[in-house]
Write a protein that binds this DNA or RNA. Structure first.
Length: 426
RNA sequence: GCGGGUGUAGCUCAGGUGGCAGAGCGUCUGGCUGUGAACCAGAUCGUCGCCGGUUCGAGUCCGGCCACUCGCCCCA
């Protein structure tokens, strides 16, 4: 038996209404907020992610699906990678097609994407090797914090529309690269005398990425962590001011948030504003629903003009898991035919085909089986299809031109002409 | 890469100390010659994850492997 590759999965028809709902609501949010869709290739030159995401990160080192393309006579095969995230690709497209060229100063480019991403790591709850992300980027010459507040406002609308409640918005500022580097030094100095009180993992983090010490879940480490300096106290003046304005914009829009100075980002390209929306308890250990932030300078890193950028991404898998049970049930139930045609006998069958065609031409979703079965069996099939109505066509109905339309939830039945059926179901 | 848990019917799961593989749900048939879902009767459903070992006999005990799953590392 050949099965799916580890960490991949089929999304079966019964779940598709949930996925489609999340996508539809996202598209509606993007439409309302002026975003246009972009699709970039599933794979890119490895170099794009290495430079964009950061050479030193674990992502680039051991968690990407990287392969060497077939060599040609005149060249070595080049290193390609299945995209681990989409921001670097979108910025690449923005540069490659000079999307900025026909923009006036201050004019923004708003793009969104929906599609699969890939990571090469051990799967766990809500984390797959092929996963689906929806994200958006705002790029241009402006880094107005009002942009950030507006994007978050859009996300709040999106979550509300999906009936996802109990989420928390966490915000932080990671500063400019220079102030972040200075803070990192300060942090390492503060950790150093406490190293003997920290766990083995934290020793490792101290060496590689000291900011990650904040994420340690071990209690004894948390005691040390509480005394460490936080980045918000070490911000450069411009970032401090930016963060203040950002919070003011959120306040003005009535958006609740919590400042979490220990929330850090793993990717090199983030500057200043970082945010997360964490979900309710349906998600297990991986409970971040949405992550995003500012990435001024990413464009330059991959060879483009100076560009400010702000964006976010969320995993569809986790968003679907977060849908409330009753909402999920409602969405599944709505994914059913309008009417199921039950026919009796060969003559009625031929007639039923024409009725089905006419109903479908009128925009009605029609389900029908082709086998001539006993009425009881056909009615059972009608109920199983979850159709709202059964349309009964036997010899009598063919002769009279009036069909039996039975409401399968109420159990009531009436005798109607084709036009009356169409009027009723439209 | 490292830990824990679990693999038995289409699905959810029972099966102390080895002794004829089970239940509920589903599916199918009938009670109902033209009316479904809550009723009744019956039927169908298995490589007990795989390979080997112990034993008269293994779903059960032992060894190895595989898969799934939760978590760690990391985090997009």
């Amino acid at each position: 038996m050949i099965q799916t590759v580890r960490g991949t999965r089929d999304i079966l028809p019964e779940d598709m209404p949930l996925w489609r709902r999340v996508e539809d609501v996202a598209r509606e949010a993007f439409r309302r907020y002026g975003f246009s869709e972009i699709r970039t290739p599933i794979f890119e030159k490895t170099e794009l992610f290495a430079r964009g995401v950061g050479e030193a990160t674990d992502i680039v080192h051991k968690e990407m699906y990287t392969f060497i393309d077939r060599a040609r006579a005149d060249s070595e095969g080049e290193s390609l990678t299945l995209r681990p995230e989409n921001t670097a690709s979108v910025v690449r497209a923005y540069i490659q097609h000079k999307i900025f060229a026909d923009k006036s100063p201050g004019e923004l480019t708003r793009l969104y994407y929906i599609g699969p991403m890939f990571r090469r790591e051990r799967p766990q709850a809500g984390r797959y090797r092929q996963f689906y992300q929806i994200g958006a980027e705002v790029m241009g010459s402006s880094d107005d914090p009002a942009i950030e507040a507006e994007v978050i406002e859009m996300l709040e609308w999106f979550l509300k529309e999906l009936k996802i409640t109990g989420t928390t918005l966490l915000i932080n500022s990671v500063g400019e690269p220079a102030s972040r580097a200075a803070y990192l030094e300060k942090l390492r100095e503060a950790i150093k005398p406490n190293l003997d009180r920290l766990c083995a993992d934290c020793h490792h983090r101290y060496e590689t990425n000291a900011l990650r010490v904040f994420d340690c879940k071990i209690e004894s480490c948390q005691a040390v962590i509480a005394s460490l300096p936080v980045i918000t106290d070490s911000l450069d003046e411009a970032s401090r001011e930016h963060f203040g304005k950002f919070k003011a914009h959120l306040d003005a829009r009535g958006i609740a948030y919590k400042v979490n100075p220990r929330m850090v980002r793993g990717l090199d390209y983030y500057t200043r504003t970082a945010f997360e929306i964490v979900g309710n308890d349906k998600l297990g250990a991986q409970n971040t629903l949405v992550g995003g932030g500012r990435y001024d300078g990413l464009s330059e890193t991959i060879g483009g003009p100076p560009t400010k950028g702000f964006g976010f991404a969320f995993g569809l898998d986790r968003m679907v898991m977060s849908l409330p049970e009753d909402e999920a049930g409602r969405l599944r139930a709505a994914d059913a035919p309008d009417v199921f045609i039950v026919f009796l006998g060969e003559a009625a069958r031929d007639h039923a085909f024409n009725v089905a065609r006419d109903l479908r031409a009128a925009g009605i979703a029609v389900a029908m089986e082709f086998e001539d079965r006993k009425m009881k069996k056909a009615m059972t099939a009608a109920a199983k299809s979850r159709a709202r109505y059964a349309l009964i066509i036997g010899d009598d109905e063919v002769a009279s031109g009036k069909y039996g339309l039975k409401n399968l939830t109420a159990g009531e039945q009436e005798s109607l002409t084709l036009d009356e059926v169409i009027a009723k179901l439209s």
